[in-house]
Design a protein around this nucleic acid. Sequence first.
DNA 1: GTAAATATTGGAATATAATTCCAAAACGAA
DNA 2: TTCGTTTTGGAATTATATTCCAATATTTAC
Lengths: 156, 156
Amino acid sequence: MTEELDRYDRLILETLQKRGRITNQELAEAISLSPSPCLRRVKQMEEAGLIDGYVALLNARKLGLHLMAFIEISMDKHTPDRFSAFEDTIAGYPEVLECHLITGQSADYLLKVIVRDMDAYQQFLLQKLTRIEGVSGVHSSFVLKSPINSTALPVS
Amino acid sequence: MTEELDRYDRLILETLQKRGRITNQELAEAISLSPSPCLRRVKQMEEAGLIDGYVALLNARKLGLHLMAFIEISMDKHTPDRFSAFEDTIAGYPEVLECHLITGQSADYLLKVIVRDMDAYQQFLLQKLTRIEGVSGVHSSFVLKSPINSTALPVS
DNA sequence: GTAAATATTGGAATATAATTCCAAAACGAA
DNA sequence: TTCGTTTTGGAATTATATTCCAATATTTAC
């Protein structure tokens, strides 16, 4: 658990962050280790919680999701119940991919949202977001393109 | 390719977005279909580019990456070469998880960055980001917590 | 509504891969 | 070096993926 990651572990993590469904045999080959210790290391890192899980990444465009936006949100009162009520509500909105509580004078939350088009975005803003108790300010930034969009953390 | 997704396809995508390394047998069981058509559908959606790929998601905290930040960046000139030079440079920085070109008066780019601590963040800002030609303004927002942090797109 | 054509399914057989176990090798400490 | 510990790699077993085809379901044309 407290053990440091060695070269093999780092290679495994880097590989799995790019190819999460690689077979153990290919993975072992890729890092120049035989399959059994390779699998053992993967399982250990899963157990240790270093690997949170495996997911498929879908193509937003092919799913018809053409509009991504970041939304800065300000709350009227900075009370714990205001915040947790807000968080609970947006947890039920599938178009919200991320919600971060952030520092900075201008906003409390930063949301990453994905929807079909501008119509759907308007619906989301008017029917959902601005109706949440305590939301006092909303500022949208639309994504024109994303030259980098990775889930891979630096393992170094 | 142009074919619509049916109920099975949507169930498959929803499941794989949560459990990317589920076995085909379990997946088939989960969506109440037998293994062979289930596998065929998965392969088809991979071929069609609906599934971009599979990745392992790592635990940032366990990797010692304790500081996430969003950085709004303004450029001095809005010329194509300024922008592509910027994009090429940050593509080489592993602490940059995302880079989005965004609308809005106050910034051109929004970056999502993850580093070990505030020291590493300072290094990143001073040694890397602000040294890139054309970067005229930088505004950082630090992430205090992330109640939602998902990679799962709404399939509906 | 029926019948032909098409697409999809489910099961059996085969090929691949994961998992387990243990002896051998590598590594560390005294 | 030598003992004790950890890690490796190969063989055997178990589980899973993949392929193929007959049976079923769905669609289309009339």
